[in-house]
């Protein structure tokens, strides 16, 4: 099975390590993937308003391109995943969006949401399997107490994202166990980091990020992992810098011995 890898803009610029470690790990795990040729920016944020069509079109283009190649879209950045999956759902279920998008794009064959958007973590859980990852680990991260930071975009809205239990997710904890470390469950792992308001209302972003870190430290976490460059930024810049924050792919690459 071939996965159409969608890195997104941030992974080509500020979050290069999220991308690089992700690729190396996939190779080490023997996953067949290929970067989508000529992918476009997903739009960074899902346009919630029902009357927005144009802002969703670049996502539709990417999805339609992947359809040509087996239809499995592999995402890594949480925001890209959220946008692509929700736009895909619109193309599957929203008659108005379908019609307008197809009229505008005039593809050879109309796109009706046939592709499937899979997050890297879902790939690890559902296609590779945490047991297989555990067996492939050469440098287990023994004794490291890691808090999983989910944020919002992977989990909500659950009716579309269907990623994990939105209030008690376990997928990243299971991942942490698979690489030999100790997961720390804390209450604010699915609370917002402050997101895009960190530019316009930095105080609010500071409050939110530091609350996440305080909750994690209260439960004994020594490190946080995330899949989102924006969360990473907020936790590092606005969280008070009291805890190490890493992309989960870096830990995976380390555990698999491919982090150099």
């Amino acid at each position: 099975m071939k996965f159409n890898y969608y890195p997104g803009c941030t992974l080509k610029t500020k979050a290069k390590e999220l991308d690089a470690f992700g690729r190396k790990s996939l190779e080490a795990l023997g996953v067949d993937f290929e970067e989508i040729k000529e992918w476009q920016c997903c739009g960074a944020v899902y346009p919630v308003a029902k009357d927005e069509v144009a802002t969703k079109l670049s996502a539709v283009r990417t999805l339609a391109m992947a359809k040509e190649n087996g239809g499995k879209v592999l995402t890594l950045c949480s925001a890209c995943h959220n946008v692509l999956k929700r736009v895909n759902n619109d193309m599957k279920t929203d008659e108005n969006m379908r019609l307008k998008a197809n009229n505008y794009l005039a593809l050879e064959e109309p796109y009706l949401g046939e592709s499937e958007v899979i997050h890297y973590l879902e790939l690890l859980r559902d296609y590779v399997g945490f047991d297989k990852i555990k067996a492939a680990v050469v440098n287990p991260l023994k004794g490291v107490k890691i808090g999983a930071y989910y944020g919002c975009l992977l989990l909500r809205p659950n009716s579309t994202m269907a990623f994990d239990n939105p209030e008690n997710p376990t997928i990243i904890e299971d991942f942490i166990k698979a690489i030999g470390a100790t997961p720390v469950v804390y209450a604010f792992r699915n609370e917002c980091c402050g997101a895009y308001v960190s530019t316009t209302n930095n105080e609010l972003a500071k409050k939110k990020s530091s609350a996440v870190i305080a909750s994690a430290k209260d439960e004994g976490a020594e490190m946080l992992v995330t899949a989102c460059p924006l969360c990473m930024y907020n936790l590092r810049q606005n969280g008070g810098g009291e805890i190490e924050v890493k992309y989960f792919t870096e830990l995976l690459a380390t555990a698999l011995g491919v982090n150099n």
Binding site: C9, A44, T200
Partner: peptide, 28 residues
């Protein structure tokens, strides 16, 4: 518009991910 493009340089730092700029722009 909630933010003007002239304000951007003041609020941007070295670390800001593209994702943040685009989402902020789209939201505001």
């Amino acid at each position: 518009n909630y933010i003007n493009s002239e304000e951007i340089p003041q609020i941007v730092d070295e670390q800001i991910p593209q994702q943040l700029l685009v989402s902020m722009y789209r939201k505001f």
